[in-house]
Simulated scan of single mutants.
Amino acid sequence: MAHEIRMAGDDDFFGWLPLFEAYCRFYETDLDDAKALIVWNWIRDEHDPLEAALAVDEEGTPVGLAQYRVVPDTLQATRGLYLDDLYVDPESRGSGVGRALIEFVHARSREIGAGGVSWITAADNADAQKLYDNLARRTTWVTYEMDA
């Protein structure tokens, strides 16, 4: 099954939404209409750094998403991309969609600088890590968070 990877457009909200809902559910995060609209507006706002790519099947139905943003790499004095969210519909997993989305984001990173792409995943997300270990270098960095 062939898939096209392309940037999300203005008319993609109702194709993007089920994927983003499933992504939030996977990470046990509630998604209400207000939050969904805020994130979508960030994606569509040319002044906001968040961008989204979609993988679409032959019928044009979105089956995967990658949401990312430009970030500075001060240690290298360049810019790269941070992959915030990656999700592939369960029926499309194993077909190369996740790899294609990451490769699309990596190609975009070369357009804006030499910083590459970085991302994090949950420690128990073993299936995704199999793909990530084939595409990227696992780092030794430890992530910290402070709640608001």
Score class of each variant (00 low, 15 high):
residue 1 M to R: 11
residue 2 A to D: 04
residue 2 A to W: 03
residue 7 M to A: 13
residue 8 A to L: 06
residue 11 D to I: 05
residue 11 D to K: 15
residue 13 F to E: 00
residue 13 F to C: 00
residue 14 F to V: 05
residue 15 G to N: 01
residue 17 L to D: 00
residue 19 L to D: 02
residue 22 A to W: 01
residue 23 Y to T: 02
residue 24 C to H: 05
residue 26 F to R: 05
residue 26 F to D: 12
residue 27 Y to D: 10
residue 29 T to H: 08
residue 31 L to E: 04
residue 32 D to L: 08
residue 35 K to R: 10
residue 35 K to P: 07
residue 38 I to T: 15
residue 40 W to E: 09
residue 42 W to K: 07
residue 44 R to H: 12
residue 44 R to D: 10
residue 47 H to N: 14
residue 48 D to W: 11
residue 49 P to T: 10
residue 49 P to C: 13
residue 49 P to E: 14
residue 53 A to D: 14
residue 53 A to P: 04
residue 54 L to H: 00
residue 55 A to D: 03
residue 56 V to L: 08
residue 56 V to F: 07
residue 57 D to L: 07
residue 57 D to R: 05
residue 58 E to T: 15
residue 62 P to G: 02
residue 62 P to V: 06
residue 62 P to N: 14
residue 65 L to Y: 00
residue 65 L to R: 04
residue 65 L to T: 03
residue 68 Y to S: 11
residue 70 V to G: 08
residue 70 V to I: 12
residue 71 V to A: 10
residue 72 P to F: 11
residue 75 L to T: 09
residue 76 Q to M: 15
residue 78 T to N: 13
residue 82 Y to E: 11
residue 87 Y to H: 03
residue 87 Y to R: 03
residue 88 V to M: 09
residue 88 V to R: 02
residue 91 E to C: 07
residue 95 S to T: 14
residue 96 G to R: 01
residue 102 I to H: 05
residue 102 I to P: 00
residue 104 F to D: 12
residue 106 H to P: 07
residue 107 A to N: 11
residue 108 R to N: 14
residue 112 I to T: 08
residue 112 I to K: 06
residue 112 I to D: 09
residue 112 I to V: 14
residue 113 G to D: 01
residue 119 W to T: 04
residue 119 W to H: 06
residue 120 I to M: 11
residue 125 N to D: 13
residue 128 A to D: 10
residue 128 A to S: 15
residue 128 A to K: 07
residue 130 K to P: 06
residue 132 Y to S: 04
residue 132 Y to N: 10
residue 132 Y to G: 01
residue 136 A to E: 06
residue 143 T to H: 15
residue 143 T to E: 13
residue 143 T to A: 14
residue 144 Y to Q: 06
residue 145 E to L: 05
residue 147 D to E: 14
